[in-house]
């Protein structure tokens, strides 16, 4: 395990894009200390911001300290494991294709932006645009799983194409906006206009009082979709808490968004 203890005190963003397990595997600690990262628009060595120790051979990186100003942690990672012991900045796990990232604290915006595979688990809260497409992109996240135990902001799963996003707490507005497919599940309170413009895929609203759906959604039935049992089991196996009343609940199924393709579904848990 390679430990990177954050020691800097700067208000200028620090960007560690590319510092992944596969990038440092096989390097010695002095070589890793010379790894270049950005501080604002300046390229500086990693050692100016982090104390580096340990051995990266096992593919595990451990970030320690208050990393709220450190961005792009684990971006473009393809394998291995990253743990962030503390808060993380924006773009955690951006465009990753594999491996696992755990943030044992809060994360900022754009967690898992346009990711293609792997797992990101934020054990605290996260910001806006989780698992979303970048501005101007036609396709967002195309695979993998994002779990946030706490609450998140707006536009979660924007233009999602494939993959699973599960939010344990509350969620802001426009969850699943323009979704092409995939699954977004919100277990807490949800903001306004969920699933607006969705073409396919599933948005699950399992919290207490769901917001009113747009008029471009039509109710189909009340059901117990069996595939949810598979997803709940997967979430549970990944250490994500699925509320006990979700397992045996009935769900109202709405089809939409009929302003788009209209082949998506919103599942709203029926409160017994």
């Amino acid at each position: 395990m390679l430990t990177l203890r954050y020691k800097a005190d700067t208000s200028v963003p620090v960007e560690v894009e590319g510092l992944t397990p596969s990038a440092v595997r096989g390097l010695s600690v002095p070589e890793i200390e010379r790894y270049e990262i950005f501080n604002g628009n300046r390229k500086l060595s990693l050692a100016e911001f982090f104390d580096v120790s340990g051995d990266p051979a096992d593919g595990r990186l451990e970030f320690e300290g208050n990393l709220a100003g450190v961005h792009w942690i684990g971006a473009k990672m393809s394998e291995g494991e990253i743990h962030v012991r503390g808060d993380a900045g924006r773009h955690v796990g951006s465009e990753i294709t594999g491996g696992t990232i755990h943030v044992h604290g809060n994360a900022s915006d754009w967690v898992g932006g346009e990711m293609h595979g792997g797992l990101i688990h934020v054990h605290g809260n996260a910001g806006h645009l989780i698992g979303s497409a970048y501005r101007g992109s036609k396709v967002g996240m195309t695979g993998g799983t994002i779990l946030v135990d706490g609450s998140v902001g707006n536009e979660v799963g924007l233009t999602l194409r494939r993959g699973l996003v599960a939010i344990g707490g509350a969620c802001g507005d426009f969850v699943g906006f323009n979704m092409a497919a995939g699954t977004v599940l919100v277990f807490g309170q949800c903001g306004n206009r969920p699933a607006a413009g969705m073409r396919r895929g599933t948005v699950g609203l399992f919290g207490g009082t769901p917001p009113a759906l747009l008029v471009s959604f039509r109710k189909s039935c009340v059901c117990r979709p069996l595939f949810l049992q598979l997803i709940f089991r997967q979430l549970q196996s990944l250490g994500f808490a699925v509320p006990s009343d979700c397992w045996s609940a009935n769900y109202s199924l709405y089809n939409g968004d009929h302003v788009a393709l209209g082949r998506g579904e919103v599942l709203i848990r029926e409160i017994a």
């Binding site: 396919r200 059901c223 979709p225 595939f227 082949r263």
Partner: peptide
């Protein structure tokens, strides 16, 4: 029909009169 990929495996959800066949 629609599909879901769960844990790397694809499952098909085929609508039937009773509900859905997985």
């Amino acid at each position: 029909q629609a599909s879901k990929v769960v844990d790397g495996q694809r499952y098909w959800r085929i609508p039937v009169m009773e509900g859905e066949f997985l």
